[in-house]
Amino acid sequence: MAIFGLWIINKAGGLVYQRNFTDGLAQLSANEYLVLAGTLHGIHAITARLSPTSGASSGAQVIEAETFKMTVHLTATGTKFVLLTSLAEPHVAATAALQKVYEAYADAVMKNPFHTPEMPVRSDGFDARVAAIIPAS
């Protein structure tokens, strides 16, 4: 089981935080990560509207590919936390890790008076907390 990466996407679809935890991921440019985050934001919005039931849907929570899966945690403010994991990673473990990262984000980033909401996250305290939650392999 492996956790490959973490993305935080703001409510407008912009990538505000990206971190890789293994060397096995494809090397992408910053622009390519921005495009992927915007695309995922659009897909998530579409899946929220495609619900076959009459109730409200929060959109896709897990997207599985042939070699990895993406687990999405949508916050009340519209910020998305995305964890890229191996297929063997249990959904419960990925969801728990995302919840812990969200709590660290709320404590280390959103309580920082010098952080501007919706802007890139540049916090050593947050980086340290993420490293404690998700160790690099």
Rank of each mutant, 00 (worst) to 15 (best):
A26Y: 06
A30H: 12
A30R: 12
N31Y: 06
E32F: 03
E32C: 04
A37R: 01
G38S: 13
G38K: 10
G38Q: 10
L40T: 01
L40G: 02
G42E: 08
G42Q: 11
I43W: 07
I43C: 12
A45I: 00
A45T: 12
I46M: 14
I46H: 05
T47Y: 04
T47M: 07
T47C: 09
R49Q: 15
R49H: 12
L50I: 14
P52F: 05
P52H: 08
T53P: 00
T53L: 14
S54C: 05
S54V: 14
S54Y: 08
G55I: 03
G55L: 11
S57H: 07
S58R: 14
S58G: 09
S58V: 12
G59T: 01
Q61M: 10
I63T: 07
E64R: 15
A65I: 00
T67S: 13
T67A: 11
F68V: 04
F68S: 08
T71N: 10
V72R: 00
V72G: 02
H73I: 01
H73Y: 14
L74F: 03
L74N: 06
T75W: 01
A76C: 06
T77H: 02
G78P: 10
G78M: 08
G78H: 03
T79V: 15
K80F: 01
K80V: 01
F81K: 02
V82S: 03
L83P: 03
L84P: 00
L84S: 09
S86I: 01
S86W: 02
S86L: 03
L87R: 14
A88Q: 14
A88M: 09
E89S: 09
P90N: 10
P90E: 04
P90S: 13
V92T: 13
A93I: 11
A93Q: 11
T95A: 15
A96L: 15
A96C: 07
A97C: 09
Q99I: 12
Q99R: 14
K100F: 05
K100A: 15
V101K: 02
Y102V: 00
E103Y: 07
E103G: 06
A104N: 08
Y105L: 02
Y105A: 01
A106N: 05
D107C: 06
D107L: 12
A108D: 04
A108T: 05
V109C: 03
V109D: 07
M110Q: 14
M110C: 14
K111L: 15
N112L: 06
P113E: 05
F114P: 00
T116A: 10
T116D: 03
P117A: 04
M119E: 11
V121T: 01
R122Q: 12
R122N: 07
S123P: 07
D124C: 04
G125S: 11
G125K: 09
G125I: 08
G125F: 12
G125P: 00
D127I: 02
D127K: 13
D127E: 14
D127C: 12
A128Q: 09
A128L: 13
V130H: 08
